[in-house]
Amino acid sequence: MNIFVAVQTDDFCHASEYNELRKQPGCGAIVTFTGLVRDLIATELYAMTLEHYPGMTEAALRDIAQQASQRWQLGSVHIIHRVGKLKTQDQIVFVGVTSAHRAAAFSACEFIMDYLKNRAPLWKKEHSAQGANWVEAKHSDQDALARWQQNVN
């Protein structure tokens, strides 16, 4: 299992990550997820600041990748999360997973995002026409995580 984790202010290139993932021996399927800063028209959101806990965030992402690799037969897992100030439509997060067949890659990619949203020490602050506000944790994210905890396989 090859794990690559990065927490960075710089943008990432989807194509470069994809080409790296393709090199994994035995790779028959690649699933990637990219999260963006959504332009919430109702609140006139124009930017977002991502805060993290240096050291712990990287360790938490690595731990999430390792948990995924214990549940599914994976080749490579890449997780990149950006921090600092981001504008609408900027890329926030990249998760790329390779496996021999599609099912494991699809499930692992979703599992990693559900765990990341609930367990990785990262916090969003939204900047909109109404001012700056810390984003509240969502019950729907906790429910998404609970689904994996009930479903052992």
Binding site: L122, A137, D141
Partner: peptide, 26 residues
């Protein structure tokens, strides 16, 4: 020491203890 714990967890001299709100990354 950068691992999530419950409030009954023990802490040694020299440890790093962090407090924060629910996480909202991704």
């Amino acid at each position: 020491n950068q691992t999530m714990v419950a409030q009954n967890a023990s802490v040694a001299v020299g440890d790093e203890v962090a407090f924060f709100p629910p996480v909202t990354g991704g």
